[in-house]
Amino acid sequence: PQVPQCKALYAYDAQDTDELSFNANDIIDIIKEDPSGWWTGRLRGKQGLFPNNYVTKI
């Protein structure tokens, strides 16, 4: 099955070790969508939390 993905609308710099940094237009694999607004994703071999208001699902 296809892994859900999202595209970064803005760059995000991780504020903690469990967060994921990314650049605008990066494509992130979505591991888990949480109602809190912090999703778990994977990018370039690293997994971490990121704010879903920085991305749009594709």
Score class of each variant (00 low, 15 high):
9 L>E: 10
15 Q>I: 09
39 W>Y: 12
35 P>W: 08
19 E>R: 09
11 A>M: 10
8 A>E: 03
16 D>E: 11
52 N>K: 07
19 E>Y: 15
42 R>S: 09
31 I>P: 01
46 K>M: 15
54 Y>H: 15
39 W>H: 02
37 G>L: 03
33 E>S: 05
2 Q>L: 11
10 Y>R: 15
51 P>G: 02
22 F>V: 04
25 N>P: 01
10 Y>N: 04
1 P>R: 05
39 W>E: 00
52 N>H: 12
31 I>M: 13
16 D>Q: 08
35 P>N: 11
31 I>C: 12
18 D>M: 12
46 K>T: 10
46 K>A: 12
57 K>A: 06
48 G>Q: 01
35 P>L: 06
40 T>G: 03
43 L>M: 15
11 A>N: 15
25 N>W: 08
25 N>E: 11
20 L>M: 08
12 Y>C: 00
11 A>K: 14
12 Y>P: 00
36 S>V: 08
11 A>G: 09
18 D>G: 13
33 E>C: 08
1 P>E: 10
45 G>Y: 02
30 I>R: 00
36 S>E: 07
33 E>M: 14
36 S>K: 15
17 T>L: 08
31 I>R: 03
56 T>R: 11
15 Q>E: 08
25 N>S: 12
22 F>P: 01
52 N>S: 15
52 N>L: 13
33 E>R: 04
29 D>E: 12
13 D>H: 10
6 C>S: 04
49 L>M: 06
43 L>Y: 06
11 A>P: 14
22 F>A: 01
21 S>K: 07
20 L>D: 01
23 N>S: 14
46 K>F: 05
56 T>Y: 09
55 V>E: 00
11 A>H: 14
25 N>V: 02
41 G>F: 02
13 D>C: 11
21 S>C: 08
17 T>S: 12
53 N>V: 09
30 I>Y: 00
41 G>A: 02
56 T>G: 07
25 N>A: 11
18 D>C: 13
53 N>C: 14
48 G>N: 03
35 P>D: 14
7 K>L: 11
30 I>L: 12
30 I>Q: 01
57 K>L: 04
7 K>N: 03
31 I>N: 01
18 D>Y: 12
56 T>D: 13
31 I>H: 05
43 L>S: 07
10 Y>I: 05
54 Y>P: 02
29 D>W: 06
45 G>S: 12
22 F>E: 01
20 L>A: 01
8 A>R: 01
2 Q>I: 09
2 Q>Y: 05
29 D>K: 04
20 L>G: 00
49 L>Y: 15
26 D>A: 04
56 T>Q: 12
33 E>L: 06
35 P>I: 10
47 Q>T: 14
18 D>Q: 10
37 G>Q: 04
10 Y>M: 10
20 L>S: 01
38 W>R: 15
2 Q>E: 09
